[in-house]
Simulated assay, not measured.
Amino acid sequence: MNAHIKTALIQTPLTWEDPEANRKVLQKKIEELEEDTNLAVLPEMFTSGFTMHPERVAENMEGKTLTWIREVAMASDVAITGSVVITENGKCYNRLLFAHPDGKVEYYDKRHTFTLAGEDKVYDTGKKRLIVEYKGWKLCPMICYDLRFPVWARNTEAYDALLFVANWPLPRISAWDTLLRARAVENLCYCLGVNRVGQDQNGHKYPGHSAVYGVLGEEIAFSDREEIIYATLEREKITHYRNKLRFLEDRDRFTIS
């Protein structure tokens, strides 16, 4: 079990609906990561931008992007995660892939599709959460709009960190900042959020604001420009505050249908 893990939040612009171009840029960024990095987090729909035309970019689970993320994770000895457009059994999903350095790939399908943009009309929804075990840490990855739903994100598995990947636009960025911090505080965990920067084909502007918050909601890292943001998560801080502040023991008990 690692006492700490070093994360790299890759805050980058995305080329609209061009998976090959985006993979090329991201691979270069990953290859240039600091040597002791354990986990690289990419934005939502990192091969295309937030498109409502999945037929233009969708791949299956044997496609180029899954092969790419597995091979780059193995070659760099870094876990890599982010979401892409996946087609399966005639349905399309906004699917987060988590590639381990040993070649294993796990996935999570976005539970809350963004109705304001019509995502619910073209993408099917996920039915279950994913808890990734990596280097002795329990990580709970989610996608963009999921951030607005605290019941779905509630820490019922004693996970150590929430990971949110997003294409979160400028007009609502204050909500992004506030909710990331809130998810950390209410779950006594680290909360990492990775947003893109730049402008997409629909004219939406993305200001970044990728960040890492600690178990008390303290800001550990933040950026509003194109860059790689590094942050080290420390096991001792989680243990210390969960022993001192036993708030999770008082949480409501519930199930989600």
Rank of each mutant, 00 (worst) to 15 (best):
H4N: 12
T7C: 12
L9A: 00
I10V: 13
Q11Y: 02
T12N: 13
P13N: 04
L14E: 08
W16L: 06
D18N: 15
P19F: 00
R23K: 11
K24F: 13
Q27I: 02
E32W: 09
L33P: 07
N38R: 06
L39D: 01
V41C: 06
V41M: 06
M45S: 10
T51G: 04
M52F: 09
H53Y: 13
E55P: 03
E55S: 12
N60V: 06
G63A: 05
K64D: 14
T65N: 10
T67S: 13
V72H: 02
A73M: 06
V78M: 00
A79W: 00
I80C: 00
T81Q: 03
V84Q: 03
V85K: 08
V85Q: 00
I86L: 05
I86Y: 02
E88D: 15
Y93W: 11
F98G: 02
A99P: 01
H100N: 09
P101Q: 09
P101A: 09
P101V: 06
Y107K: 07
Y108R: 04
Y108A: 07
T113F: 00
F114L: 10
T115P: 05
L116Q: 15
K121P: 00
K121S: 15
K121N: 12
D124W: 10
D124Y: 09
T125N: 12
I131C: 05
W137F: 11
W137M: 03
W137Y: 01
L139H: 08
C144W: 02
D146G: 05
D146N: 14
D146Y: 02
R148F: 14
F149L: 13
P150V: 01
N155W: 07
T156Y: 06
A158S: 15
Y159L: 09
L162Q: 02
L163R: 04
A166Q: 03
R172A: 11
I173C: 03
S174V: 13
A175L: 15
W176N: 00
R181I: 02
C189I: 08
V194D: 09
N195W: 08
V197W: 08
V197M: 08
G198N: 06
Q199T: 15
Q201G: 10
N202F: 15
H204C: 12
H204N: 14
Y206D: 03
H209V: 02
S210P: 08
V212I: 09
G214P: 09
V215G: 05
L216C: 13
E218R: 00
E218G: 10
E219K: 13
I220M: 14
I220Q: 10
D224E: 11
R225T: 14
E227V: 04
I229A: 02
T232R: 14
E236V: 05
I238E: 00
T239Q: 14
N243S: 09
L245V: 15
L245E: 14
F247A: 13
F247P: 06
L248M: 13
E249Y: 07
R251I: 12
D252A: 15
D252T: 11
R253K: 11
R253S: 15
F254L: 08
F254D: 12
I256L: 15
